[in-house]
Amino acid sequence: MTKPVLIIGGGPAGLSAAHALASAGRKAVLVEKEAILGGAPILSGYAKLVPSHEWAKDAIGGMVNRVVSNPSVEVKVNSTVQAFTGTPGNFVATLKDGSTVEAETAILATGFTHFDPINKPGWGFGTYPDVVTTTMVEQMISSGKGVRCPSDGRVPDRVAILLCAGSRDRQIGREWCSKICCTVSANLAMEIREMSPKTNVYIYYMDIRTFGLYEGEYYWGSQENFKVKYVKARIAEVTSNGNRLLVKGEDTLVKRPISIPFDMVVHAVGMDPNVDNMTISAVFGVDLNRWGYIGKQTTYAHLAETSRPGVFTCGAASGPETIDDSIAQGHAAAMAAMNFAGMAVRAAAE
């Protein structure tokens, strides 16, 4: 009997890999650090997803259900891998509770960590209660309570969304573009305008990267249908004039210093490498890339290979990734894992 494939991480990528393996008649063991499956969209309480506008709990919840109810997948929540030994085809993982799992191959679907804007102190997060993150706004919407200023619960008149919080910023060691924040911010801006038409939403950007098919629906749509205003600016700091937040910076289109009052400031937080990546790297013996994500060996030949044969990766573990692409990569990693196992069997047969 063939051994199962060990999948680390129960977010969109891990769930999709598990489902793909089970669909192909293979067994999988899914290890999740948290108490529930679903990854960032569920754990962080996302509202409606881009681009389908389904609620995260419905869309990702559906993925969770079909994995949990699949007899070919063994799910272990509240669990982490402490040690990982052996060779491809004969790996042994030791879990937190001391139990062991024998696995043929492993897939690291360990995802990312939201950028903590406390690391961008000039932008006021942690200093002023009404400076929040896109994740917090998602939670305000998904909880049904609506967008309110945390300080006193009022509906804000003016909301500023600051793009690239923790992305494309060498000053704080984050050179990458987190890909999806522009689109997510445009989507949130539209939702805020829809819930509270009197709230004016401004998006401060250096470039708008609503890539691919998102341009029309999100960038254009937010302007044409919801009158969201985009200002090309570099934000220097977020302070307060005593009763409102003050966003200070430089309007780079008209080359003018700006100092604009707001009721709520939203950081469009990017995707940091998973904070546990150093541990994951040590336990699984895989290299990280120079940004701290799990390194991939090749770009084209095999999508999912890490530096250790028999260990694959998918989703945001190897760099900022969208949910739909993470799901596609989960399938790719499952395919790579099955292909790898098949090669070992063929080699043994010869």
Binding site: R158, N200, K227, R256, P257, I258, S259, I260
Partner: peptide
């Protein structure tokens, strides 16, 4: 003198 603007007419558009 500084060029910062602090007075906005929100309804202008």
């Amino acid at each position: 003198e500084g060029r910062s603007i602090t007075d906005y007419n929100e309804n202008l558009q």
